[in-house]
Design a protein around this nucleic acid. Structure first.
Lengths: 128, 128
DNA sequence: TTTGACTTTTACGTCAAGGTCAACGATAGT
DNA sequence: ACTATCGTTGACCTTGACGTAAAAGTCAAA
């Protein structure tokens, strides 16, 4: 029990390269165990990688992802830090809400494109 | 009537640099008019820039944005092209739906962070 | 007419996020 | 013993999306 994942196991599961995972370790995002020099990834590492990739998909930079991870493992205790964090969180939320709106708008635009395509196809089909 | 925008007018409105707009022209995304060497942007250019920036916000590359613009100004007439386009549109939609989900998940996560912050603040406030 | 704000082109610089290549070690199968 | 597969480090390379600096043109206001 407490299974370990090998690096290639994870690259296959997530469709990324070993370079990427090593890079993330260099950047301090993950800290897999070692047996000798070989990296051993635990389920917790795996979950963390999932979250990293989610952050990546929505356009967070490595630095931003690292910051978020930091907050999770070591939430700030000082008042000023907390207030700073909260304002930064609010900023991010605003950004994400904008992004979501952008996505929604683009999705309906794509609906239109598809419809136009179907219309066009029908025309061609009729003409055959 | 048929007002023209100057390049700096637009950079101010959208919070981007002149370099960016010239770059977009080099990349064939926009085609402002010219009076001599000076670029003159019409309302249609302005709207196009807005859409480009929206694409940028949701993580589209220049190449992808160019492709979308192409489809709009010159929809394909041939059957194979149309089918190709539709499948690519469907891919993009799937990608965007995933991204949307990622954003929603992250938003609720940020809710939790905020709540944790508030709790922490209350503790500190009580201890004062 | 000089200053200031704005514009142009050309060209090199930068930064993030990996890709790629070399050179090597450990382990398992034939 | 040989080969394959998987792992390692280290170093340089690449790509996208601009930044930045140089050198110069335009035009209005003071």
């Amino acid at each position: 029990m407490n299974k370990y994942y090998s690096i290639t196991e994870l690259t296959r599961e997530f469709g990324i390269s070993t370079r990427t995972l090593r890079f993330y370790e260099d950047e301090g995002l993950i800290h897999p165990e070692r047996r000798g020099r070989t990296r051993l990834f635990r389920p917790a590492d795996r979950r963390l990688i999932q979250e990293i990739l989610r952050g990546r998909r929505i356009g967070f930079t490595i630095a931003e992802i690292r910051e978020i991870i930091q907050v999770y493992k070591d939430p700030p205790g000082e008042l000023g830090q907390l207030q700073l964090l909260m304002s930064r969180v609010e900023e991010k939320r605003e950004e994400l809400r904008q992004k979501r709106k952008d996505i929604d708008d683009t999705l309906t635009e794509l609906d239109n494109v598809e419809e136009a395509c179907l219309t066009r196809l029908a025309e061609i089909g009729v003409g055959t």
